Amino acid sequence: MLQLGLWNLAIVALIGFTLRCKILFEIPFLDYRNLLRAHGHFAFAGWIGFMLLTLMAIQRFAPAKIPLGWRRVLWAVYTSAIGMVLTYPVFGNGAPSLFFASVYILSNFVFVAMFFTGRATTVEKSARVLNFWALSSLLASSIGPVVLGSMMANHSANALLHRTSVYTFLHFQYNGFFTLAVFAHLFGSRPALAALPAARPFVLLLCAATLPTLPLSLLWLNSGLLYGVAAIGVLLLIATAIAGWRLYRQTHGIKISETPLARGLMRLSMLSFAGKVLLSAGTIIPSLGNAVYGDRPVIIGFLHLVFLGFVSFYLLAVLVDRGYFTFGSRLRRAPIMVFGAGVLANEALLLLQGLGILLGTNSGYFNWALLAASALLLAGSLLMALSALRPAGKRE
């Protein structure tokens, strides 16, 4: 099933490339906003969401195969994601798109219910704690789409409620589900790492920071209470960073990944996570917070830092370890190197474009450069999906 995720990543990259083309060229038969909705929904549901839920199921039942009932739920997640990518470009927020979005949310609820009520698992305790909070965050993130759906049904134009719902959804996805699920898999698949003295404090602080950091995304509401809670969240983030650094220093001698390629991807993933934590904590500073949440390239850059740099690099490291890229070493590295170059170029260009907007020196050439970066992402993702077609022994 994980191989389907690679093709989904290629579809996400194709839509992203098309969006960059739409900015520069007249493509009258494509609606930019509808295509953007398709891009976002499929990136969350078809790539990250589907992959993380599948890895949770694989880890829970390893070395056995995933039971039929669980597979059916995962297929419901996959089918609803495909439905969204097909309907959003045509119907926008119309009934067909909302139907598949609702199926996706319901499938998540069913998966969580099965996960919480299923038989006991041998997965390491830290991973169980992280999985619990990751799936709880996944359910909490559904508050955003439900509120937005209610607003559309009632023809409400409340801009503050709309923006609050969007940022609530993003927070519980990016800082909750995505982050916690990645570390749940990391600790669950590497017991030696979970046994280190700094592992437990890191896990507990990471989970504890999830809820009080929500106001960091809502400081534009100018509420004293939100600033107070956000300050607690920032302290927890700082403590998490310190515990994470101590954990990193204790990992010397522990084999984190099977191959040099996977270890390199893991390092990039954890470096992106560190950047995410620092940027999140820094948003409590008004000038930085206004830049992050008021400068569109910076917002996109931050979201891509988590989506591509942190989560996607981690997922690719897992796939490398599981034998999904089986050609000769150089050929195996090439697709991932192309994709990685696209990620790094995309991040650097969005940062420079954001600074250019803040300083009043922005240039139209950035859009052309970002188109080239999106072409690298598309080429790399397609090559990875194609290179994973060759059979290998460790796959699910």
Rank of each mutant, 00 (worst) to 15 (best):
M56K: 11
A76E: 09
K125D: 09
L74T: 09
K65M: 12
L74K: 05
F50H: 04
I48N: 05
V73L: 06
V110D: 04
S137W: 02
N108S: 11
L53S: 07
I48A: 01
T122N: 13
H39A: 00
S107N: 09
V112K: 03
L74H: 07
P89S: 05
R72T: 14
S80D: 09
L68C: 13
L52A: 09
N93S: 11
S97D: 03
A127G: 11
A101R: 01
G69M: 00
T117K: 13
M114N: 03
G69A: 11
E124T: 08
T122A: 15
T117L: 13
L53F: 14
V77G: 05
P67L: 04
K65L: 15
A81M: 09
A76P: 11
G92M: 03
Y104A: 11
F115A: 14
G118C: 03
Y88I: 02
P89A: 02
L52R: 08
S97L: 00
L135W: 00
P63E: 10
L68D: 09
M56T: 15
H41R: 07
H41F: 05
R60M: 02
F115K: 03
A134V: 06
A45K: 08
T121F: 08
L74C: 03
L55K: 06
L130N: 02
A113C: 07
L106P: 12
V90Y: 14
V112C: 02
F42C: 01
A43G: 12
A64I: 09
A64M: 14
S97C: 06
R128S: 13
F115Q: 12
P96D: 01
A120T: 12
Y78S: 10
Q59G: 12
I82A: 14
V123M: 04
K65R: 15
L135F: 07
V110Y: 04
S137G: 08
V110F: 07
F100Y: 00
Y104Q: 10
A101T: 10
A95V: 15
L68P: 07
A113Y: 14
R71H: 08
A81L: 00
S80G: 11
G69Y: 06
T87A: 10
T87L: 04
A76L: 11
V73D: 04
W133G: 05
W133R: 09
A57E: 03
A45R: 02
K65Y: 12
A127P: 03
I82F: 15
R119A: 15
V123E: 04
T117I: 06
V90S: 11
Q59A: 12
W70L: 01
W133E: 00
Q59K: 01
R119Q: 13
L68Y: 12
G92E: 00
A120K: 15
L98S: 00
F132M: 04
R72G: 14
G40F: 04
P96I: 03
P67D: 02
N131P: 15
F116W: 15
G83Q: 08
Q59N: 12
W75A: 13
P63D: 09
S80W: 03
M56Q: 14
L68S: 14
L86G: 00
Y88H: 13
R119C: 10
H39P: 10
I82N: 07
R71Y: 11
L68Q: 13
L98Y: 08
P96L: 10
K65W: 14
V90T: 13
G92T: 01
N131T: 15
R128Y: 02
A57K: 01
S97E: 11
S126F: 10
M51T: 02
R60T: 12
G46N: 07
S80K: 03
H41Q: 09
G40C: 04
R71A: 07
Q59Y: 06
